[in-house]
């Protein structure tokens, strides 16, 4: 989503616009769900927690407790907090108290979630992969990953490729990136 449009929608959402909230949720929800999956949440639970996180942000806005916010970061933090709290609750239910082992498991889950922030070194390796891609592949990659709510069909039509070819490109780029980031 264009930065200016995102900022406009954020302002409208802060003033209580339901359509603005809906647009922001549609744009950023997948990243929120992905962050929960990355932290080990089961898919269905990840969707539920993401929904809960959005509902809570809307509630906070209604209560006048959001002066400003950045997305998807705030929604991701809210959702991840809910997931970690659920892990704590499970640990308590299992042992009666929150023991060191359970807290360590929660900390591990949190650390895993934080791994999405790449180090400068890994970012540079990924950038090397990106620069080495054919122009058409790089263009497809940037169009898709800079616009998470944009349908692949739309990107395919714009670049003049089939949807299958676009997804093949994405899978190839993912494979190269995975290798580069895991080195």
């Amino acid at each position: 989503m264009e930065l200016a449009l995102s900022q406009t929608l954020s302002r409208q959402a802060l003033s209580g616009s339901s359509p603005a909230w809906e647009a922001l949720i549609r744009t950023h929800d997948r990243c929120v769900v992905l962050s929960l999956l990355a932290a080990g949440a089961p898919p269905q639970r990840a969707k539920e927690l993401a929904h809960d996180a959005w509902a809570r942000l809307i509630e906070q806005q209604r209560l006048g407790r959001l002066a400003e916010f950045e997305l998807p970061g705030l929604a991701i933090r809210q959702a991840r907090f809910l997931w970690l709290d659920e892990l704590r609750a499970r640990a308590r239910a299992a042992s009666g108290t929150v023991g060191e082992e359970a807290l360590a498991a929660v900390a591990d889950a949190q650390a895993t979630a934080e791994e999405r922030c790449l180090s400068a070194d890994r970012l540079a390796r990924a950038r090397g992969v990106l620069d080495a891609l054919p122009e058409s592949s790089r263009r497809v990659f940037l169009m898709i990953y800079n616009n998470p709510d944009r349908p692949h069909t739309e990107v395919a039509a714009q670049v003049g490729l089939s949807v299958q070819r676009v997804r093949q490109i994405l899978c190839e780029v993912r494979k190269r990136m995975r290798e580069a980031l895991e080195e």
């Binding site: 990243c31 992905l34 962050s35 999956l37 990355a38 932290a39 080990g40 898919p43 895993t112 791994e115 999405r116 922030c117 790449l118 890994r122 970012l123 990924a126 950038r127 990106l130 990659f141 940037l142 898709i144 990953y145 800079n146 998470p148 780029v173 993912r174 990136m177 995975r178 980031l181």
Partner: peptide, 18 residues
Amino acid sequence: LAAEARLELQLHEVAAAA
């Protein structure tokens, strides 16, 4: 699946940085 989700988030980061 968790690893793929992490990679997906990282790719968003790579694209944004690029």
